[in-house]
Design a protein around this nucleic acid. Structure first.
Length: 267
DNA sequence: AGCCAGGAAGAAT
DNA sequence: ATTCTTCATGGC
């Protein structure tokens, strides 16, 4: 088991894992266990350092986006009064580099759902179809999920999303190349939304979390409540307005606002 | 009992 | 291109 040490205040395991971008984590004695793809790490705070313990240091260094300077991002967002305090509050967030298929499946489940139940459904999915790694289960491959029926998905608690999932697993390869090779978030979203169960909001999540198009701004109920005004009275108007306003910083801004709103530290 | 949760699909307009 | 309705499930 190897250890990665990351120094400074711009990486908090709590902020990074509890800001809603990832569902496969659980508390450990020292911090958290995080599962991604078929790998696992333990992450915890030790003095001024954040420690990542894992058999896969290269994978998780990239996964936790360690090469990026988040102090610059938080500083740049101070120019926008409406997110300034949220960015400081969530300065320990790092936007994870998630795998495309896993992230797509996870956020199809997330639609019109609550985080606790999303986590439980994904856990049941991994247990049912993921490779048994001893201490945990890998996220299922697409091939493994092809062997599951609509009823299997429904039995995991997916509800009406079971039909979306059954279709999504089958059509995913038809658009995968176009999604990956798209050179803008907007273009990627166009192809993502050809997958059943992926609409505007989920496509924005995937383009941000799995494709690193930071010119994304997912508008869910929390963001809409925080951002809507008499002028910005639909999710689409909110999205357009803040994409234009924040540009390449939009995805980061959205995560700070979402996290602050959910933690109850916004007006 | 009714409303909400990181919304989307399908139909109607 | 917008607006309306319906869709499982569980917590509160």
């Amino acid at each position: 088991m190897e250890k990665i040490l990351y120094n400074g205040e711009y990486f908090s395991p709590k902020d990074t894992l509890e800001c809603g971008q990832i569902f496969r984590y659980k508390p450990s004695e020292r911090g958290y266990f995080v599962c991604a793809a078929d790998k696992r790490a333990e992450v915890y705070t030790q003095g001024e350092n954040t420690v990542i313990e894992t058999e896969y240091p290269n994978f998780f260094a990239n996964y936790f986006d360690l090469g990026r300077d988040y102090s610059k991002i938080v500083k740049s967002l101070q120019a926008f009064p409406e997110v300034a305090s949220a960015a400081v509050f969530g300065k320990g967030i790092r936007i994870l580099n998630q795998e495309l298929f896993e992230n797509t499946v996870s956020f199809i489940i997330s639609a019109n759902n609550n985080i606790k139940r999303i986590q439980a459904i994904i856990e049941r999915l991994c247990t049912a179809a993921g490779e048994d790694k001893g201490d945990y289960f890998a996220f299922p491959t697409r091939e493994a999920m092809l062997r599951l029926s609509r009823d299997d998905f429904a039995d995991m608690g997916m509800g009406y999303r079971a039909d979306y999932m059954y279709s999504a697993v089958r059509t995913f390869p038809d658009v995968e190349k176009d999604i990956i090779s798209a050179n803008s978030g907007e273009e990627a979203r166009k192809y993502l939304m050809m997958i059943k169960g992926v609409g505007e909001k989920v496509a924005n999540c995937i383009s941000l979390f799995a494709l690193k198009h930071t010119r994304s701004y997912p508008v869910d109920t929390w963001i809409f409540k925080a951002n809507s005004t008499p002028q910005l009275n639909t999710p689409q108007k909110v999205q357009r307005h803040f994409l234009e306003r924040y540009g390449e910083l939009a995805g980061y801004a959205q995560q700070y606002v979402f996290y602050a709103a959910r933690k109850g530290v916004l007006v």
